[in-house]
């Protein structure tokens, strides 16, 4: 019984299927799809020469050490980040400082992060009581110089390339600075440039 029903269904499908096969319907459908792609727009991002992707604020890139509005370092060298770090990539050596460099009299003498070990989990960020450690949106970490993999305090205190105020999730115009081997995005020169890009889809 069951077998018979299967056979009859097969013939029905077979008739249409046969016609489809004779006129190559399935193949032609496939070819029309690929032709559409071929004539349509490419989604390739020509990074780093022309475009660059700006990640969303939640993206976790290289660490930064923040300052408060008056320019004092927020870090109090409490070493909670060291304790929280699962890979032991952060080194903090505290020292006493009364010059007002930091918001408290305890400031880090050394604050380094080993980016080879770091897995960008963001626990340090969570552990920090003063919001001194933040993970920025810098992701261009490739380097030919091994010493560049350990970032020290002075570097981390520089403001991040992509300011926190930028919303992210966009592609911006960029160019490749061959000499310094850096990608320069000129988003800051053109205000709200990315929005028009967004509208384009």
């Amino acid at each position: 019984m069951k077998k018979g029903r299967n056979v009859s269904r097969k013939i029905e499908g077979g008739l249409i299927g046969l016609l489809k096969k004779i006129f190559f319907i399935d193949l032609l459908t496939g070819m029309s799809v690929t032709l559409g792609y071929n004539l349509g727009k490419s989604i390739t991002m020509r990074y780093p020469h022309e475009e660059k992707w700006i990640p969303y604020p939640r993206f976790r890139g290289v660490h930064t050490l923040n300052r408060d509005d008056e320019g004092r370092e927020l870090c109090v060298a409490c070493e909670l980040c060291v304790a929280a770090c699962p890979t032991d990539c952060i080194t903090v050596v505290p020292e006493e400082d009364l010059t007002g460099r930091g918001i408290a009299d305890r400031v880090p003498k050394v604050w380094t992060v080993n980016l080879v070990r770091c897995l960008f989990c963001g626990y340090c960020e969570d552990a920090c009581p003063t919001t001194a450690v933040r993970l920025s949106r810098d992701y261009e970490l490739a380097t030919t110089d091994f010493s560049r993999t350990v970032r020290n305090r002075d570097e981390l205190l520089q403001p991040p390339a992509i300011p926190e105020t930028v919303k992210g999730g966009v592609v911006v115009e960029a160019r490749y600075d061959k000499k310094n081997m850096k990608v320069r995005a000129n988003m800051l020169r053109q205000k709200d440039w990315w929005k028009s890009k967004l509208n384009l889809g």
Binding site: T34, Y37, N38, I43, T44, R46
Partner: peptide
């Protein structure tokens, strides 16, 4: 180039 564009890429550039 054809390969690139069919795969919504750009091909050699």
């Amino acid at each position: 180039k054809v390969a690139g564009h069919i795969q919504v890429r750009l091909g050699p550039f």
